[in-house]
Amino acid sequence: MSLLFRESQRREATLDALLATRGLSTRAGAASVVGPKKALKHSVVWGATRLRADLVSLMPVDVYRKVGRVGVEVPKPGVLVAPSSVAEGHPMGIGEWMYSSQTALDRTGNSVGIIRETDALGKPARIDLVDPDEVSFRCKGGRIVEYRVSGELVDAKYIWHERQFTVAGIPFGLSPIAAAALSLTAGLSAQEWAVAWFENGANPSAHLKNEAKVLAAGEAERIKARYGESVAAGTPFVSGKDWTYTPMAAKAAESQFIEQMHYTDTDLCRFMGVPADLVDVVSNAGGSITYANITQRNLQFLVTNLGGSIKRREDALSTLLPAPRYVKLNRDAVLAMDAKTRAELVKIRIDSRTMTPDEARALEDEEPLSEEQYAQFDRLWPTRSNAPVTNTPTGGGQ
């Protein structure tokens, strides 16, 4: 039996005892400790994460420049076409990059990349994404003052950092499940929430390390005693004015939160910001989605569930551009309508003079109508006229 296996057993036994003292039950009397990636392996969480990332990656990234009161589309810089690469001669397109970064945001609340190249204006020209689990933050006064990637110090000016589900006073993001846990336990004290969330056996879940000074012998003994108390309680160990936060047990805590609270698939969909029916979960509320209202359903999802995330991503990507340029993700690209609904909408716009027939044909990747085609229309419908109709006043009665 390996030392690692024995240590794992000891942690499970310790966790069960701690949960019992706090009135938290386990399912069917069995140990509820799960692996660090159990929450991600849950099919509902995985399906919701994939759906959100897929939809975001489908949206074309367009760049506009404000001219008067109108936004005029302009060419995209290279960083918004192929922002990274996986090998020499193998660029990573913007769609794949958006998918990967959105997945990181929905898994951990943070998308982190290293800026490898800059353009003539000093704006990022290449951003290589990194695993957010390999990133640690040293914070001071509610600000991040140091980034480490896989243990190596990286200057903050070379870091690309997007956040999601932020909390005042915490300069990094939370995962959807962690944000839900924090909100649902708002009635508890911070210490109680930390115990319930970060509890992970005999080790403190996070170490907040003092790097400001060398500790004297007496101070070291006092801190050692405090560390022992942290080990016993499973709460983060805090010391010093500058602190480094490393989320050692974030994934395990998410798994335990789901297991201990007995949340259903519908609850998980609510946490992830995805309607249950879109990931094949039967909602207790009942109802059904038919093809008659699928377009409205997709629009509702984009507005109420993804709208905030998309807007924050647009704002973040706009920082890659010189002012007054800005980024817009084309939401219309994912509102795929059936042919009949699309044709009706185009006809309404043409009849209301807000779109020309040539513009409508361009949406279907078709060339403008030729003179020969117009002549054929005249032969088929010779009485058709687009002349405006005027009302002729009638005379008064005799």
Score class of each variant (00 low, 15 high):
residue 1 M to L: 13
residue 4 L to Y: 12
residue 6 R to Q: 06
residue 13 A to C: 04
residue 15 L to D: 08
residue 19 L to S: 11
residue 22 R to S: 05
residue 27 R to Q: 12
residue 28 A to I: 09
residue 32 S to Q: 07
residue 34 V to I: 04
residue 34 V to D: 11
residue 36 P to Y: 02
residue 46 W to H: 07
residue 52 R to K: 14
residue 53 A to D: 11
residue 54 D to W: 14
residue 55 L to V: 07
residue 60 P to F: 03
residue 61 V to N: 11
residue 62 D to H: 11
residue 66 K to C: 06
residue 71 G to Q: 07
residue 80 L to K: 10
residue 84 S to C: 09
residue 86 V to C: 03
residue 87 A to N: 08
residue 89 G to E: 01
residue 90 H to L: 12
residue 91 P to Y: 07
residue 92 M to F: 03
residue 100 S to W: 03
residue 100 S to N: 04
residue 111 S to C: 05
residue 111 S to D: 13
residue 113 G to L: 02
residue 116 R to F: 06
residue 122 G to H: 10
residue 126 R to Y: 08
residue 127 I to R: 07
residue 128 D to H: 09
residue 131 D to Q: 07
residue 132 P to I: 01
residue 133 D to Y: 02
residue 137 F to C: 05
residue 137 F to T: 04
residue 140 K to R: 08
residue 141 G to Q: 11
residue 142 G to Y: 03
residue 142 G to K: 02
residue 145 V to S: 12
residue 145 V to D: 14
residue 145 V to Y: 12
residue 147 Y to F: 13
residue 148 R to P: 02
residue 151 G to T: 00
residue 155 D to M: 06
residue 157 K to G: 04
residue 160 W to G: 05
residue 163 R to P: 01
residue 169 G to E: 03
residue 183 S to A: 11
residue 187 G to V: 00
residue 190 A to M: 05
residue 190 A to W: 00
residue 194 A to Q: 00
residue 195 V to Q: 00
residue 195 V to N: 00
residue 197 W to D: 00
residue 199 E to W: 01
residue 200 N to M: 10
residue 204 P to A: 10
residue 206 A to S: 06
residue 206 A to N: 04
residue 207 H to T: 05
residue 209 K to M: 04
residue 210 N to L: 02
residue 212 A to H: 12
residue 219 E to A: 09
residue 219 E to V: 06
residue 220 A to N: 08
residue 220 A to K: 14
residue 220 A to P: 02
residue 227 Y to H: 15
residue 228 G to A: 09
residue 232 A to W: 03
residue 232 A to G: 09
residue 234 G to K: 03
residue 235 T to L: 01
residue 235 T to V: 14
residue 237 F to I: 01
residue 263 Y to C: 04
residue 264 T to K: 01
residue 267 D to E: 10
residue 272 M to L: 07
residue 273 G to D: 05
residue 274 V to M: 01
residue 278 L to C: 00
residue 279 V to K: 00
residue 281 V to Q: 00
residue 284 N to D: 07
residue 285 A to M: 09
residue 288 S to H: 09
residue 290 T to G: 13
residue 295 T to E: 15
residue 300 Q to A: 15
residue 303 V to C: 04
residue 305 N to D: 07
residue 306 L to I: 13
residue 307 G to P: 02
residue 318 S to R: 13
residue 318 S to T: 15
residue 319 T to F: 13
residue 327 V to H: 07
residue 330 N to S: 07
residue 330 N to W: 06
residue 330 N to R: 14
residue 335 L to H: 11
residue 336 A to K: 15
residue 338 D to W: 07
residue 341 T to Q: 15
residue 342 R to F: 06
residue 343 A to Q: 10
residue 346 V to R: 15
residue 348 I to Y: 11
residue 349 R to C: 01
residue 354 T to G: 03
residue 355 M to K: 10
residue 358 D to T: 10
residue 359 E to H: 05
residue 369 L to G: 02
residue 372 E to D: 14
residue 372 E to N: 08
residue 380 L to P: 04
residue 381 W to E: 12
residue 382 P to D: 11
residue 386 N to L: 13
residue 394 T to N: 04
